[in-house]
Amino acid sequence: MNKNSLNRYKAHHNKWIFNLLLWVLLFFVILFLFADFPLKKIDFIYVVSYLLTLIPPVSLLIYYLVPKFLKKEKYVVFVILSIIIISLFSYLNIQFHQLIIDKIFTDYYFISYYNDVQTLIVFAAVSLIATFFKLLEDWIHYNQNERREIEERLKVLKGQINPHFLFNSLNVLYSLSVGKNKEVTEATLQLSNILRYVLYDSERKTTIEKEKELIENYIAFEKNRHTVNSTIKFISNIDTDSEIQPMLLLPLVENSFKHGLKSNINNPFVIINLEFNKNVLLFEIENNFKANNLKYTEEYNGIGVKNIKENLAILYPNKHELTIEKTNETYKVKLVIDLK
Rank of each mutant, 00 (worst) to 15 (best):
N4P: 13
N14L: 07
N19G: 09
L20I: 15
L21P: 10
L22W: 07
W23L: 05
F34V: 12
F34W: 02
F44N: 02
I45M: 07
L51A: 04
I55W: 06
S59Y: 14
L65S: 05
K71N: 15
K74Q: 14
Y75V: 15
V76F: 09
F78G: 03
V79P: 01
I86R: 04
Q98E: 14
D107N: 14
Y109P: 02
S112C: 10
Y114I: 00
I121L: 11
L128S: 06
K134A: 01
L135C: 13
N145Q: 08
R147N: 14
R153Y: 11
N171W: 05
L173M: 04
Y174A: 01
K182T: 13
R196P: 08
Y200H: 00
D201Q: 09
K205P: 05
K205D: 15
T206D: 12
T206V: 13
I208D: 00
E216F: 00
I219L: 10
N224Q: 08
I235F: 11
D239C: 05
D241L: 00
M247E: 00
L248C: 07
L252Y: 12
H259S: 01
K262Y: 09
K278E: 13
K290P: 13
N292L: 00
I308E: 04
I308K: 00
E310W: 06
N311C: 03
P317S: 06
N318I: 11
E329A: 12
T330D: 07
V333Q: 02
K334I: 14
K340H: 10
